[in-house]
């Protein structure tokens, strides 16, 4: 394991200045993913800048009924927050569906957005992987790819994003806030990216995962007001009952009036290199009847674009069934 330097910072200007433009330095949040990757040699930073004690650990309401979530809020605190549970229940459920109690106590919101895929080729330095070692190839296309992507993948990479939290954030139009040190005289400068724009398309550059500028520190996430989000759910399917990454997951939110879908949100997990907002399905749903046939048609509208490999085609019926089941449950819940 490479020897590395370690430095703790207590405010944002110090953090972005400490990292600077050094490509060999990394911010350290909870360390629940980065430290594992350092042990296995996937990440080999020369320096760690520990941002865990930055004053970014608050969850605050925004005007109109949204929330601003600090980057160092832990998963446990996020899932327990009363406003999150009331206004965005799927977000709390998604966070609780991930990892274990111990990991959730350490993991942070900022780090969660930046966690890396668990594709078995990516995490094994003895194997080829375009994401880890650009140009070396993607053995998953022909090899082990039961959990590979349905959407937005390329022959260069078929890995999926592992986050549960991100699937709820995608459904609720989250905006990611960051700061860099490239203001006048190296001062911090703020920026923001909608979650849709935060993750880059895979294309032939799977090693470039986010649109964050070099040296940027995620400072928080804003969830805009979304009344429909109060009627939301997260459902995760995995190969055991807990402590496993999803093979398919879904954030669904539904607002029905007089049998007609007024608003709906759908985002899929474990089907793409990013949390996948199912906009085609939403378009098919909104304004139409709230019934099982319409839900199935909406799922099909999204899944029509799915590109399957030899061993991951099961995800198509899985996601279709999940969409129908979750929307049906939400609709029944609303009627009670």
């Amino acid at each position: 394991m490479r020897e590395f330097g370690y430095q703790k910072v207590l405010d944002v200007p110090d953090a972005v200045a400490a990292l600077g433009a050094d490509p060999d330095a990394r911010f350290l949040g909870g360390g629940t993913n980065l430290v594992d990757l350092m042990k296995s040699g996937v990440e080999r930073p020369a320096r760690l800048v520990d941002v865990r004690d930055l004053p970014l650990d608050r969850i605050e309401p925004t005007p109109g009924g949204g929330l601003r979530i600090g980057a160092t809020v832990t998963n446990s605190d996020l899932a327990a927050h009363p406003d999150v549970r009331r206004r965005y229940p799927a977000l709390a459920q998604a966070v609780l569906a991930g990892a274990s109690g111990q990991l959730r106590n350490m993991a942070t919101v900022g780090g969660n957005l930046l966690q890396r895929t668990r594709c078995g080729y990516f995490t094994d330095v003895t194997k080829a992987c375009n994401k880890r070692n650009p140009g070396s190839g993607c053995p998953a296309v022909e090899g082990e790819h039961r959990n590979a992507a349905l959407f937005g993948a390329s022959r260069h990479c078929v890995a999926v994003h592992p986050s549960d939290m991100g699937v709820a954030l995608a459904a609720f139009d989250a905006v990611v806030h960051y700061e860099t040190a490239d203001g006048p005289g190296g001062t911090p400068r703020e920026g923001e990216l909608a979650l849709d724009a935060f993750y880059l398309p895979v294309g032939d550059t799977p090693h470039l995962e986010t649109a964050l500028p070099p040296g940027a520190l995620i400072t928080g996430v804003t969830l805009p007001p979304a009344p429909v989000a109060a009627h939301s759910r997260y459902r995760k399917v995995r190969e055991r009952a807990s402590y496993a990454f999803a093979i398919g997951s879904l954030t669904a939110a539904l607002d029905v009036e007089d049998g007609i879908v007024r608003d709906a949100r759908l985002a899929f997990g474990a089907v793409a290199s990013r949390p996948w907002r199912a906009r085609a399905a939403e378009r098919a749903l909104i304004g139409g009847p709230a019934d099982g046939d319409a839900y199935a048609a909406a799922a099909d509208a999204e899944l029509a674009a799915a590109e399957t490999l030899r061993d991951n085609a099961y995800k198509v019926p899985l996601m279709r069934n999940l969409v129908v089941a979750q929307l049906t449950e939400l609709e029944q819940e609303a009627r009670r």
Partner: peptide, 30 residues
Amino acid sequence: ALHEEAVRDQETGGHVGADFAGYHFAANAD
């Protein structure tokens, strides 16, 4: 019955996912 399976990549002849994130056995909830 439900979880355990080591996967061998035929191209390299080695395991894929040879760790406890990739090789599943029952967790308490199972």
